[in-house]
Simulated scan of single mutants.
Amino acid sequence: MKVTQAEFVISAVGPDQYPEDALPEIALAGRSNVGKSSLINRMINRKNLARTSSTPGKTQHLNYYRINEELYFVDFPGYGYAKVSKTQRQVWGKMIERYLLERETLKMVLLIVDLRHPPSKDDELMYDWLKHYEIPICVVATKADKIPKSRWQKHVKQMKEGLLMRKTDSFVMYSSETGVGKDELWAHIESIAGLNQEENDQPESEQTAE
């Protein structure tokens, strides 16, 4: 996808704040320091639209980013951060669970993991939960640039086996530093969100005019 417009819309804490324009939504879930904000910024070719922080756990709401007036990225609070209180984690958990189960415009969840390490227990729990509720999922393994290319496949195998990934689920190896996996991930998002189909369904005259 060629991104020509991207904007932060809202930090939502409940359904009454979610956008009502019915655009497809792609959610991003992962532990607090896995690089979700960096992934978003690389995907939309912006340096700091999604704010990165050296303090894990900073994202405390569902952060909506609208892209090309065609879809949203919805950034979840990071999980697995010990300094966040148990009460706060429970509040986040209920908010996220309600969103995942009730949001009709949700098309897919990107489960962001760190390619350098085996999946955490939280990663495994999130993957299993999404599979249980039959929510479309794509596992995105970040920080590929931190590993020599000769060891990529070893780490991919480690991640897939650790999550007990189904063969039908998509997996993208990614680097926010080098852009590895960016085009592949966009192609998958466009397909899931139905953006390619919408473009193909236009009359030929309209496509030519564009």
Rank of each mutant, 00 (worst) to 15 (best):
E97D: 15
N196P: 02
N33L: 03
I112M: 10
L101V: 13
L28A: 03
E184P: 01
R116K: 10
Y99R: 04
A6D: 09
S53R: 03
D114H: 05
K83Q: 12
H132N: 15
I137S: 02
E102R: 05
L115R: 09
M159F: 02
A50D: 15
F76V: 14
I137R: 04
L28I: 10
K154I: 10
E69M: 01
T52V: 14
A193S: 09
A27D: 12
A50R: 12
L49D: 12
V74D: 05
A141M: 10
K131M: 13
L71M: 14
S191A: 11
S175Q: 11
C138D: 12
M165Q: 13
D122K: 05
V13Q: 01
I189D: 10
R98L: 05
F8H: 08
S38C: 07
G179Q: 11
W129D: 15
Y64Q: 13
P19G: 09
H117S: 13
Q158G: 01
G80T: 06
Y18T: 14
V109D: 07
A193T: 10
E177F: 00
V180R: 13
M126D: 00
T168L: 09
V3H: 06
A12H: 02
D128L: 13
Q5Y: 03
Y18P: 11
L115T: 09
Y99H: 07
D145G: 01
V139W: 03
V180H: 09
T55C: 08
Q60P: 04
I26R: 06
L115A: 15
E70W: 02
S32A: 13
P15L: 00
K146S: 07
A193P: 04
